[in-house]
């Protein structure tokens, strides 16, 4: 379902999720060439660096939570999961946002991917 999509994964993302991307025909590439940037922890240095980059400051890049991969490859809700619900804001903003909207949708996916 990710046929030909180029993705970059933070070191914070579980190996299983990277494998899932590849299993669904996604390609793993570097940050410059990727159209999809995934992280599971905005506080991880590699993700923090993106949130401080000029591309981010000038609205050219966003990071998504890697739980999107769990959710979208879950067969029941496969087509209906909007990537937009998995927007991952900088770590230093999350508390402030949580105060206003409650928990993020990516926090509601609590079931970890079961190891094969």
């Amino acid at each position: 379902m990710f046929g030909g999509c180029r993705g970059w994964f933070s070191q914070s993302v579980a190996r299983e999720l990277c494998d899932l991307w590849v299993a669904e025909r996604g390609v793993i590439t570097n940050q410059e060439e990727a159209d999809y940037l995934f992280s599971s922890d905005a506080a991880h240095p590699d993700t923090k660096r993106i949130h401080e980059s000029l591309d981010y400051l000038e609205d050219r890049i966003e990071v998504f939570h890697s739980n999107y991969l769990n959710a979208s490859t879950n067969s029941e809700i496969k087509i209906t999961v909007p990537l937009g619900h998995f927007l991952l804001p900088p770590a230093c903003l999350q508390e402030e946002i949580r105060k206003q909207i409650g928990s993020f949708i990516w926090e509601q996916i609590t079931e970890p991917l079961k190891p094969q």
Binding site: C5, A34, D35, Y36, L37, D59, R60, I61, E62, V63, F64, P82, L83, G84, L87
Partner: peptide
């Protein structure tokens, strides 16, 4: 949608 166009 992707990481490049989402903000816009």
């Amino acid at each position: 949608l992707n990481s490049r166009n989402f903000c816009k």
